[in-house]
């Protein structure tokens, strides 16, 4: 080996040594635990390869919990994306005073991080059986929410609660995309004869669509993995997947540790796919908005 090659080799070694701590951290605390669960999902307690665990997910109880999780995540992400989009549209293009925009963005920064246990408390105090809104509706308008079938500890209640952090997250992510709509695009479309509706359907919406869809997927994954809010709102009575997994970790309620791994694998697959599509769509959108 020539001395030049030796020096090159040494330089390469030093280069890699520089990020060795990070790689070690990633392997120990991200990659290995995930791989452990993923491989665990495909072996039986005796250590032999099997699809039984994954097949075991397709029982009524587990499928039902995936289904309710997906329903809540879908409803809160689509609802959050829809409302968030209109809020962002209002402050960016609605011609409102600029202080509204900055307050909304600041508030969104706070509210999107205001999740978990305290959020559950807030909604209990608002829409719980003795919550302020529940009581006001009863005393002022004679509407008895709970008698009409509403329950905070239900699909609709949880969706409303989740939307409290979903809407601000949407606002934060979609506002830059709306800012990226150039004034000239609208003017170019107009001068070429397009009406306002034609501009939105043929130009603005197609441009925004990857961002909107991508962010909705991100919100979906965000809701799908969340547990603290639901857990402290409903205890372990409400069978969304993360709560099921929580119970499994605490006490092996499925009576099969490997089935627990499969449960986790299912979560990774669902959040993983939606996140990957999000990242892909976002790269597409950014390419356009250069």
């Amino acid at each position: 080996m020539s001395s030049k090659q030796a020096i090159d080799l040494k330089k390469t070694a030093i280069d890699w040594l520089g990020i060795a701590p990070f790689l070690l951290f990633a392997v120990m605390f991200l990659i290995a635990p995930t791989l452990y669960l993923v491989t665990g999902a495909f072996v039986n307690p005796a250590g032999e390869f099997t699809f039984d665990n994954v097949a075991g997910l397709f029982t009524d109880k587990i499928l039902a919990s995936y289904w309710i999780s997906i329903k809540i995540s879908l409803a809160s992400s689509i609802g959050g994306a829809f409302i968030g989009f209109f809020l962002a549209w209002a402050v960016v293009l609605g011609g409102l005073p600029s202080w509204i925009r900055s307050s909304l963005l600041t508030f969104s920064g706070v509210a999107s991080n205001f999740a978990g246990v305290p959020l559950a408390f807030a909604f209990l105090a608002t829409l719980g059986r003795t919550g302020l809104v529940t009581m006001l509706l009863r005393d002022w308008f004679g509407i008895n929410l709970y008698a009409s079938g509403f329950n905070l500890l239900s699909f609709i209640g949880l969706t409303l609660t989740y939307m409290y952090f979903q809407i601000p997250l949407m606002v934060l992510i979609i506002t830059p995309a709306l800012d990226g709509l150039k004034k000239e695009w609208r003017e170019a479309a107009e001068i070429l004869g397009a009406t306002n509706t034609q501009y939105w359907t043929k130009v603005a919406m197609p441009i925004l669509f990857p961002s909107i869809l991508g962010t909705t997927l991100l919100l979906f994954a965000n809701a799908f993995g969340a547990i603290a809010t639901a857990y402290s709102l409903t205890g372990s009575t409400f069978n969304i997947v993360p709560i099921q997994l929580y119970a499994q970790i605490r006490g092996d309620v499925l009576h099969n540790p490997n089935l627990g791994y499969a449960l986790a694998l299912g979560m990774i697959v669902i959040t993983g796919i939606s996140n990957l599509i999000y990242i892909w769509l976002r790269m597409r959108a950014e390419r356009w908005q250069k």
Binding site: A32, P33, T34, G225, P242, I249, T271
Partner: peptide, 15 residues
């Protein structure tokens, strides 16, 4: 952001 926290900690507990 992709792997839910509960899954990560599940892995820790086993590993």
């Amino acid at each position: 952001l992709v792997i839910p926290a509960i899954v990560i900690v599940f892995g820790y507990l086993r590993l």
